[in-house]
Nucleic acid binder design. Structure first.
Lengths: 353, 353
DNA sequence: GTGAAAGCGCTAACAT
DNA sequence: ATGTTAGCGCTTTCAC
């Protein structure tokens, strides 16, 4: 019942434990016949090397730690799925640490700083206690976390957040460009009076998306009317409130023909408000969102939005992590990857004649 | 730069490594002053015991392996969140292995059997390679997986699936009772002509839910008209098709006043069909679903459904795992926990006068 | 090409 | 109450 060890294999195959180790790891040439003998014994016995012992010796656990801000929040699972997809092709494993931050800071997007200690304790446990080889930090919304994560002398990749810390790489989606494309899509469909419902105005994604929107307007020689902008807070209720306000302050003539909400939740809130005002999407007002959350395919009509390739973000983060760890050795330098997004056209945009 | 070890602490505190170990683990009494000296050095140096070395010695890694069929599927994250919630109060950690089964077997709910090898390889790696102390298997839909998981002489807890294997505990939600409650809710609102859209008819949850539905009918001295039953496949499109068929085979008089779909996806499909038929939910037909997926709160009108307490399922699974592992020692015997669910009343059920 | 043996950082007899 | 030390299962240096 006691698990079988390298010693057992060695005895059974009539070689030394060193030789068994050589064939398992291919770390030194071994005579073909001995090699075969060892291999046979291994497969006959279903021997599984003890990774714990190996780790102690090599000081590498082959474990990637995932430090997730909150696994329940929108981007996290998609990103973890991408990480898994890459990782399962390697011999690394995933140690998951969920910070469960959502409870403690609902919509207090700034307070994260105050969680610094909690985060670094977890990080430090992961690295010094569990001895993971690298960590991927998965944010729950894009923001700048420069200065939050201490330098632990092992690769840290931040996904879905940015950092300008020297020791950190990041991978994100392209807020600005995709906002431009989304806006362009509206403009191409003949919309000129476009209202915008922003996310929390001081947050990075809100600013980048606004920049992207402005660019599309400029390209088309249009100007974004500042009276058509409302500041939401990323939540559905704020989308509703902003839209209601927009509706109340519009006459038949000044009604926007389209509303761009900076995420799906607010877009759906806007759709709620439009429905309550007895107006129709997209016949009376077109609506577009951002994120392509599951729900955007379930509202009626189905929401046109931009899809963030979370899987690619995770995949890329995992790839960078393993690259930095081993193989190439050629010092992969600190990089900040941007994964492109794409507009998903569904049923909430009308073509204006 | 080389990490600090128990030896360093011992030297610094002027005691033996054994003593340091004793104070860290409380495994033997230590003189208060020495104790304090050790503690001081530890906190001054931020010493983190090397879990790898400890594991090698004690043959316990303090890691719980999660073997998830697919992290992207509906119940998985909720359950993992529950596991995390419990685990973070202990000194265990989570090693996550996502089987990513969804791709390979979309809606082929039987084929899982053929994945047996893949599953057991992962299981065996987790247990014999990574040396996790226990594993929690997270299914992506309720079914019986008796005979799938080999006995690895460590606790295995199955969440969101059942098994009658001796060595396995399981924790699930209460399909039958919640179906009864949901049906009762319809009946209490005056509905008698109730149509049912089932999930794949041969699957366990479909059968249990049907049983629960029948019980509610019986209680109310009603009979479930077999011409009002349609077999779906758990997907939205099948809900649409079933509802369309129901509508086409009904006259004004035989139209059901309510439709119970065995999950939210099919309920939403049914709502789509009702809308396409220019009928209104709930004025013309009431609709209820099952699962309380996110989307059920985003469709219009908001869907009445039954909420499965995924967090409690995960929490309970983690609790059983740690119980079986340690502490009480009093051989927690193989149990099969059932977590109650509850009906979430929203806007899709009309009260009939 | 192969084996003997040291040692990774810790715990737990065992001795004192 | 505390220290000495063997040993967990592996890799790797060094000698042959």
């Amino acid at each position: 019942m006691t698990p079988i060890t390298i010693k057992d294999i060695a005895r059974e195959a009539g070689v030394s434990t060193a030789t068994v180790s050589y064939v398992i790891n291919g770390s030194k040439p071994v005579m073909p016949e001995k090699r075969q003998r060892v291999l046979d014994v291994i497969s006959k016995t279903n021997y599984q090397p003890n990774r714990v012992a190996k780790s102690l010796r090599t000081k590498k656990t082959n474990i990637i730690g995932i430090l997730a801000e909150d696994i329940l929040e929108f981007p996290t699972v998609g990103i973890i799925n991408g990480i898994s997809e890459y990782i399962e092709k390697t011999d690394y494993n995933i140690l998951l640490n969920d910070l469960r931050m959502l409870d403690s800071l609902f919509n207090q997007y700034d307070q994260i700083i105050h969680q610094k200690d909690k985060i670094n304790n977890a990080l430090s446990f992961l690295v010094f206690g569990a001895k993971v080889d690298a960590v991927i930090y998965v944010g729950m919304f894009n923001r700048d976390i420069t200065g939050i994560l201490s330098n632990i002398n092992k690769p840290i990749i931040v996904a879905y957040s940015t950092s300008s810390d020297e020791h950190i790489c990041s991978v994100n989606h392209d807020n600005e460009n995709s906002a431009t494309e989304l806006t362009r899509h509206l403009i191409e469909n003949g919309h000129k009076r476009i209202a915008v419902i922003t996310g929390l105005a001081h947050t990075a994604p809100a600013q980048m998306r606004l920049k992207g929107i402005n660019r599309a307007f400029k390209e088309a020689n249009l100007v974004l009317d500042s009276t058509m902008i409302r500041n939401g807070d990323w939540e559905r209720a704020s989308g509703y409130a902003c839209m209601k306000d927009l509706l109340e302050h519009s006459t038949r003539d000044t009604l926007p023909t389209a509303v761009l909400a900076m995420n799906d939740l607010m877009a759906i809130g806007a759709m709620d408000a439009i429905r309550d005002a007895k107006l129709k999407v997209p016949e009376d007002i077109s609506v577009v969102g951002f994120d392509n959350r599951n729900v955007s395919n379930f509202v009626f009509p189905k929401l046109t939005t931009v899809e963030i390739d979370l899987e690619a973000i995770g995949y890329s983060a995992a790839k960078i992590a393993t690259q930095k760890l081993g193989g190439a050795e050629g010092h992969v330098d600190s990089q900040n990857i941007i994964i492109p997004s794409k507009v998903i056209m569904r049923d909430t945009v009308a073509r204006l004649k």
